[in-house]
């Protein structure tokens, strides 16, 4: 059993709506083993994206963590000051978003935005930054990195944009990548390529990946471990192969048959 890079203990996230407290994530317990791909699967509204944001402490203002601890290498992230947490973001934990068109700032070039990460977290400067960006883009499978470097987000195709987003997420060599529905807006062939890329990140760059998705069928080929979420609660978890072959919870069965999105 691999040791866990991140342990989520009794995570409970709530929101106040119309003077009523609604729990978006309810007592979630999850261990994310190092150098593995862990999938968090559930339908929309199940709390999976909220969990991802909670790890980075980037919950929207209306939401708050009611209870729980998120332990990173022995330290509870909830006890860190904002400044300390900021040092973690990007450098230790990176995030890949669902729709790269919305997650990239439309008025800056790709190169500029990836460069920001490097400037913030590394000691590189000047032309070395561009070299590094080219190297990163090549790693994620981009042909003609110099063109991409100088392009604006809207100028690229969906697949290229997602690769660029992944390049941005790994730029500072974080240990953990949280990928929130990274392929939901791509067509099937592109999905396969991106999944391939994640495999590469795990095997060659030794990264840990938390893959958030609503498609159980897609993650089954990639993730070693999967946790199923429904209405904020974890209903089932364990080795992906056994869950896929013998789903116990009715909700898991529905996911398997793609009856729920």
């Amino acid at each position: 059993m691999q040791d866990a890079i991140l342990k989520i203990n009794h995570l409970t996230v709530a929101v106040q709506e119309f003077n009523k407290e609604t729990l978006l994530v309810n007592d979630l317990n999850l261990e994310i083993p190092r150098n593995r791909i862990t999938a968090l699967v559930g339908s929309s509204g199940s709390g999976k994206t909220t969990t991802g944001l909670a790890i980075l402490r980037l919950l929207p203002q209306a939401l708050y963590m009611k209870k729980g601890a998120i332990v990173w290498e022995g330290q509870d992230l909830m006890n860190l000051s904002e400044n300390q947490m900021r040092l973690m973001r990007g450098k230790k934990i990176g995030m890949v978003f669902q729709e790269p068109l919305n997650a990239f700032n439309p008025v800056f070039t790709i190169g500029f935005q990836i460069g920001e990460v490097l400037k913030q977290h590394t000691t590189l400067s000047g032309p070395k930054i561009n070299d590094e960006i080219v190297r990163l883009l090549t790693t994620v499978g981009v042909d003609d990195p110099p063109r991409i470097l100088n392009s604006y987000p809207y100028q690229l195709s969906g697949g290229l944009r997602q690769r660029a987003m992944i390049a941005q997420a790994i730029a500072a060599s974080p240990s953990l990548i949280i990928a929130d529905e990274p392929t939901s807006n791509l067509d099937v062939t592109l999905q396969a390529h991106i999944m391939e890329l994640f495999r590469k990140l795990r095997d060659e760059l030794k990264m840990t990946i938390l893959l958030i998705s609503h498609d159980l069928g897609m993650v089954v080929h990639l993730a070693e471990q999967v946790a199923i979420l429904a209405n904020g609660r974890m209903v089932e978890s364990g080795e992906t192969k056994s869950i896929w072959q013998h789903p116990r919870h009715p909700f898991t069965q529905q996911l398997k048959q793609k009856m729920v999105i």
């Binding site: 900021r86 978003f97 008025v107 800056f108």
Partner: peptide
């Protein structure tokens, strides 16, 4: 309230830069 502001914060950029550079520019 846009995603790219959230993304900028997730990159670990200081809050000042997020607001006065990324947000204001748009």
């Amino acid at each position: 309230s846009q995603q790219y502001i959230l993304a900028a914060r997730a990159k670990g950029l200081p809050e000042d830069r997020v607001i006065y550079w990324h947000a204001l520019r748009n």
